[in-house]
């Protein structure tokens, strides 16, 4: 029954990866900014939730504050860091280095404030319930999978049915043409950052309630988001979502064969295989742009 247990754990982990990766993919697809600090948005949201919970503000307030913090962080990065660099013809790599630097700074500030060791919030939600002999699933796992489904459907409806959503898809095609249509690419870019950052919140909250937090978690989250974006196909948010699930499942199912320290190697083995066999990713529409 080990593999069945690991499949359930993998689905929970995969759901969290999927949403975070979808957020990164949304931002990268629409703005072409390599937002490495996306991982920092994740830990920031998680620690804001942790702080709200431990200060007795309650779970709902914690979630709202975490969402506001993540969105404010994303928009601030876009307006105050990326926009000035891009105004001075900053290259892709200048933006990347700036993002990387801020990511590390946020991680260290959180470490100074909350300490570098693992913290977790204990709730009944993370207690495993016996599903059948040898298979235990916590309510949090079901919440994670439901959240991934819900947010993904909402995101798809938003991108396909609303004008702002269409404009975000158009922004990915050509920011120059967006201006000729009378729209402001800067404002759309901020919306992409706000939404992409919002997508880390369910994962951040569920991680804080479940496996626990430490400030360096941002790097792992970022790595997975990046891998899922490439595996899924750059520009395909659905692809990033599916790839997030695949990576979460693979990471856990690999435990049947390998020791736990090999899980990241499994992620990268998948990434390399996809790059070799299907460079455009599983759902990529354009191999090059």
């Amino acid at each position: 029954m080990l593999w069945l247990q690991l499949t359930f754990t993998g689905l929970q982990v995969g759901a969290l990866y999927a949403l975070t990766a979808a957020g990164f993919s949304l931002i990268f697809g629409a703005t072409r900014v390599f937002h490495f600090a996306h991982g920092a948005a994740f830990v920031l949201a998680a620690y804001v939730f942790y702080w709200a919970e431990t200060s007795g503000l309650g779970m709902v307030a914690g979630i709202v504050l975490a969402a506001l913090a993540a969105m404010a962080f994303g928009v601030a990065m876009d307006r105050l860091v990326y926009a000035p660099i891009q105004r001075h013809e900053g290259s892709f790599f200048t933006v990347f280095v700036a993002s990387f630097g801020i990511g590390i700074a946020v991680q260290n500030v959180l470490g100074m404030v909350f300490g570098r060791s693992f913290v977790t919030i204990s709730t009944g939600l993370s207690r495993s319930v016996k599903l059948m002999d040898g298979v235990y699933v916590s309510p949090l796992a079901w919440i994670a999978v439901a959240c991934a489904g819900l947010f993904f459907v909402a995101l798809l409806l938003f991108l396909n049915r609303t004008h702002v959503g269409m404009a975000l898809r158009a922004l990915a095609d050509s920011p120059e043409l967006i201006r000729a249509y009378g729209l402001d690419p800067r404002r759309l870019s901020s919306i992409a950052f706000a939404l992409g950052s919002l997508l880390v919140v369910p994962s951040a909250v569920i991680t804080a309630l479940g496996s626990g937090l430490n400030p360096t978690l941002g790097h792992h989250v970022m790595l997975i988001s990046l891998a899922a974006t490439i595996v899924g196909g750059i520009g395909s948010i659905g692809g990033a979502l599916v790839a997030g699930f695949i990576l979460g499942l693979a990471e856990n199912l690999a435990l049947v064969v390998f020791e736990s320290q090999w899980t990241e190697a499994v992620t990268f083995a998948i990434l390399f295989l996809v790059i070799l066999l299907r460079p455009a990713g599983l759902f990529g529409r354009h191999a090059t742009r």
């Binding site: 269409m166 404009a167 898809r169 158009a170 095609d173 050509s174 043409l177 249509y181 529409r285």
Partner: peptide, 15 residues
């Protein structure tokens, strides 16, 4: 002057 990933209807609607 079009966005390849949008449908013609969407381009008109957004325009």
């Amino acid at each position: 002057g079009i966005f390849p990933s949008l449908t013609v209807n969407e381009i008109f609607e957004m325009g």
